[in-house]
Nucleic acid binder design. Structure first.
Length: 280
DNA sequence: TCCTATGTTGTATG
DNA sequence: ACATACAACATAGG
């Protein structure tokens, strides 16, 4: 499920336990999500520690505990966090459960594409501090986007939008939403975009991130029917702008949905005063 | 049975 | 060295 806004939503689910002490740590035995990290190390450091803060960036979450302990969680494709009562019984797909006196903090992930990271030290871990600057930050500029597209010029723009090193937090549905709003065909080579199209891509990337955080990020509520979002998985779904049936095809290894006609494969020639007069 | 799934990563190839 | 493409990971549900 999780892209930028969903991750932000899940992050907040453990917040009622801020300031509380972890009494017991349950890790799924030999959990794949640890990727070789030492489970004993994690359990020992978190047992008796206080949850002090949480943060989300891109598709990552970071939870800081007393004793300079840092817990990182990536939800992968099917991960989720939830808050449960302290009597909670650990479920089949749970990978980490932290019990406080008042709550159980649960991380479950049935497909196991997620990840648990853990470190101890005065500074936030490298994997966290090296996350690319957010799409909604001032460092995410049209120039930065243009430079990135130039280096990835032969790859389809859809695949490029999924690259976390420049578009942190953008996932499959957000990428399609952005391209649909910017009226750019997902198969267009990244290097073929005009300056106007790059500007539109930049603008819509920021718009989609901001609005997704306001809707999905608050309470997992679906964005309105005016978005591509609620139509993209529907059988027989139509473009909410043009009424034309949406198309689905695999691009860059991911199912991609777009509105034919609105998003053209040929670089859109801009209709200018000069071109209109030439056409006459 | 076969197909799909809001993600990343290792590996092969250009 | 860099860019690109794609299988692999593991599980459930239609």
């Amino acid at each position: 499920m999780p892209e930028l806004a969903e991750v932000e939503y899940y992050r907040k689910r453990w917040d009622p336990a801020l300031g509380q002490t972890v009494a017991r740590v349950i890790l799924r035995p030999a959990s794949r999500l640890l990727r070789g990290a030492n489970p004993k190390h994690l359990s020992e450091a978190l047992t008796g520690a206080v949850l002090e803060s949480s943060a989300a960036a891109a598709k990552q979450m970071l939870f800081r505990f007393s004793g300079d302990a840092w817990l990182g969680i990536h939800l992968g494709m099917t991960g989720e966090l939830k808050l449960a009562a302290p009597e909670y019984l650990v479920g089949k797909h749970d990978h980490l459960v932290l019990f406080t006196a008042q709550h159980a903090l649960v991380f479950s992930d049935f497909r196991q594409f997620g990840r648990i990271q853990f470190s101890v030290g005065p500074e936030a871990p490298d994997w966290w501090t090296s996350i690319a600057p957010p799409v909604l930050s001032s460092e995410f500029t049209p120039e930065a986007v243009a430079g990135f597209l130039r280096r990835r010029q032969r790859a389809p723009i859809k695949a490029v939008l999924l690259m976390q090193e420049r578009f942190p937090g953008i996932g499959n549905w957000m990428a399609d939403e952005i391209l649909w709003r910017a009226e750019i065909h997902p198969k267009r080579p990244a290097g073929s975009l005009s300056p106007d199209e790059i500007q539109a891509l930049w603008r819509e990337a920021r718009w989609v991130c901001r609005e997704a955080l306001r809707t999905v990020g608050q309470d997992l509520r679906d964005p309105p029917r005016t978005w591509l979002f609620p139509h993209r998985w529907e059988n027989g779904g139509v473009c909410p702008k043009t009424g034309v049936p949406l198309v689905r095809e695999e691009i860059g290894g991911r199912t991609t949905c777009w509105s034919p006609g609105r998003q053209k494969l040929k670089p859109g020639k801009k209709s200018t005063r000069a071109s209109r007069s030439r056409a006459r």
